[in-house]
Design a protein around this nucleic acid. Structure first.
Length: 261
DNA sequence: ATGGTCGCTAAGCGA
């Protein structure tokens, strides 16, 4: 089965891209971030016509996340449990698969603007809360996928300019330590299980011909829990829709899972 | 050269 993540930067602006991409890439699960719409505006019917159910956690203007799935979703949880958050950034759900239940945790991590800012402090607090929530979530659901827009480059090789951007947003030691803490929960960055092209990125700034010059960052990730690791058969970034007219600034990332034991 | 480009929403914010 295939599970994908895509920050669409407004589902209103990108609905046709999503539909076109799903026709070419009929993944089992597609997790979306930055819907930038309230639940009542979510295009449930058109996605249903495309074969997908949806669990939605929207918000006006900013943020907003959704899980699209061919198979039914259940036990939907919105937000990080025990963390008061006014922003719609996390939605989790269980999907019944032929290999058993799979917990999917879809996140739009805080951007953080710049180190030292109030938004950065919020990012650190949010990351700490996510970590504690995930520790409980993994214990309850051994087969778990954590995916989304992490707004963190895990390593220098995930940035087009790790020297010039050292300790700037998405590159700070503090952010990377939070990413490592997620790995310490037993999660594995599926993208790095495989040989990948150098300078593989998932986001490129709209400004300064960022995409054309491949001035990008790898900040969209798919992490898998320990029992899933032997089932991972691939993880790729699909740059194709980044070349379409009026693209999202992010490209989809796609995980392939084998059937397992 | 202290900007640049989007999206949302109607001047400025967030990314």
């Amino acid at each position: 089965m295939k599970i994908a993540t895509w920050n669409v930067n407004s589902l209103t602006a990108r609905l046709q891209h999503v539909l076109d991409w799903l026709i070419a890439n009929p993944v089992d699960v597609l997790c979306l971030q930055e819907l930038k719409m309230t639940d009542d505006k979510f295009p449930l019917e058109v996605l249903k016509s495309a074969g997908y159910e949806a669990a939605v956690f929207g918000q006006k203007t900013y943020n907003g996340v959704a899980i699209l799935s061919l198979a039914p979703v259940r036990d939907v949880v919105k937000n990080i449990e025990n963390f008061a958050d006014e922003q719609s950034r996390v939605i989790a759900a269980t999907i019944e698969t032929p290999s058993g239940p799979l917990r999917v945790v879809n996140c739009y991590f805080v951007n953080g603007q710049e180190p030292g800012s109030e938004k950065f402090a919020y990012k650190m607090k949010w990351l700490g809360a996510l970590h504690d929530y995930l520790a409980r979530e993994i214990a309850a659901h051994p087969n778990l996928v954590l995916l989304g827009d992490f707004n963190v480059t895990p390593e220098d090789r995930d940035s087009f300019d790790p020297v010039g951007l050292k300790e700037t947003i998405h590159h700070t030691t503090e952010e990377r330590n939070h990413f490592k803490a997620l790995l310490d929960l037993g999660l594995t960055d599926s993208f790095r299980m495989f040989e990948q092209p150098e300078k593989s990125f998932s986001w490129w700034d709209y400004r300064m011909l960022g995409y054309q010059k491949n001035r990008g960052l790898r900040i969209d990730h798919i992490l898998v829990s320990e029992p899933l690791v032997p089932r991972v058969t691939g993880c790729v970034i699909d740059r194709v829709p980044r070349k379409w007219e009026k693209p999202s600034d992010h490209a989809p990332v796609v995980l392939e899972l084998g059937p397992g034991a």
